[in-house]
Nucleic acid binder design. Structure first.
Length: 177
DNA sequence: GGTATGATTGACT
DNA sequence: GTCAATCATACCA
């Protein structure tokens, strides 16, 4: 499952033709105190217990949407949070949605990413292999670095945050390095 | 039925 | 650096 999180870095994700290269992800396991699936299945995280390859979307702080890719075996309850991506396609559309011009701010962060790609609750449970989504494997695999997770209140010491080495599009809510 | 909490962001001192 | 916004879901009574 952590392998999926690492492998996902570098893939290109497009939503209705708009998107970019995934540069930062975070893994969430069933036995992870910080995971939504910790403690069993609930009405909210039902998607995470479904088939892998689906999109799990939830609202954070009542203000932002966060997008995850369900991973692992069906019924396990594991997913990978998409934390940041490098805008490559549909820059203008993303600028309009985000209201900013700097490409580095278009999708550097879970909430920003969903806003830039126009992902919301209506996409929860959809298959990423089907329209309007499009996943493209990277031609070359660049260096992926492992680091402590950020933005959560529990099990923050687990090094399950994966990001593209040297990328300037990685979110840094509370950078350590 | 009522209260507590968060895998965040953006604005302000 | 500090703090408020804002709401779906979780959990308790």
């Amino acid at each position: 499952m952590r392998v999926v999180a690492r492998d996902l870095v570098g893939w290109t994700l497009l939503v209705e033709g708009v998107g970019g290269v995934i540069v930062e992800t975070e893994a969430y396991a069933p036995d992870d105190p910080a995971s939504h699936t910790f403690g069993g299945r609930t009405s909210r995280n039902g998607t995470m217990f479904g088939p892998p390859g689906r999109l799990y979307v939830y609202r954070s702080y009542g203000v932002h949407w966060c997008a995850n890719v369900v991973s692992g075996e069906e019924g396990v309850g594991a997913a990978v949070l998409l934390r940041a991506l490098e805008p490559t396609t549909g820059l203008d559309a993303m600028r309009t949605r985000r209201g900013v011009d700097d490409p580095r701010l278009l999708a550097a962060g879970p909430g920003r990413l969903t806003q830039a790609l126009a992902i919301s609750g209506v996409h929860d449970g959809l298959d990423l292999a089907e329209p309007p989504f499009e996943l493209v494997a990277p031609e070359t695999t660049r260096g992926v670095v492992e680091s402590p997770r950020v933005g959560i209140t529990r099990a923050t010491d687990r090094p399950w945050r994966y990001s593209l080495a040297g990328s300037i599009f990685v979110s840094r809510p509370r950078p350590r390095a």
